[in-house]
């Protein structure tokens, strides 16, 4: 670790455009990220257009693999939470990152999967809204 190491918050946005189709993640992390010390996955926008609820405990879940698929961290639940008391803390990790390595995984949507959101022919109805999930990596960077 060099003296210039600092903490950055690296966001990775993914869009969910179909209720049933898993979203695959294949993204290369910037070469200056040395270590991921925390992970946070939040719903950003979209679900509020489909539901009047302020809290849905699990709209889907995310599986994450670091370091060119050599380390499967496992699954994280993604909630929709518009309440004031929602926690915005990070989940502690401590994952040494191979510089410039692949971050892979998948996100599977678990809500609004009925036929009034996606018709049998696969097209989506106007009740469905695309939504965006953001993965924040709290990382040590030496850029």
């Amino acid at each position: 670790m060099t003296g210039s190491t600092r903490v950055i918050h690296h966001p990775i946005q993914l869009i969910v455009r179909q209720p049933l189709t898993p979203v695959n993640i294949y993204t290369v992390l910037p070469g200056h990220i040395r270590r991921v010390v925390g992970v946070k996955v939040v719903h950003s926008v979209g679900v509020h257009l489909m539901s009047a609820d302020t809290y849905l405990p699990a709209i889907g879940y995310l599986s994450l693999e670091f370091n060119n698929r050599s380390y499967h961290m496992g699954h994280v639940d993604v909630s929709f939470d518009n309440r004031a008391e929602a926690s915005d803390a990070y989940l502690d990790t401590e994952i040494d990152i191979i510089p410039g390595s692949l971050l892979s995984g998948h996100y599977e949507n678990k809500v609004f999967t009925g036929t009034d959101y996606q018709r049998a022919d696969g097209t989506i109805t106007d009740k469905w809204s695309n939504y965006i999930v953001t993965i924040y990596l709290k990382a040590l960077s030496d850029d």
């Binding site: 209720p19 539901s51 809500v111 609004f112 999967t113």
Partner: peptide, 12 residues
Amino acid sequence: GGGLSSGGAAGS
């Protein structure tokens, strides 16, 4: 197809 709902009940 593996969702929480099997109809209109989803999320509501």
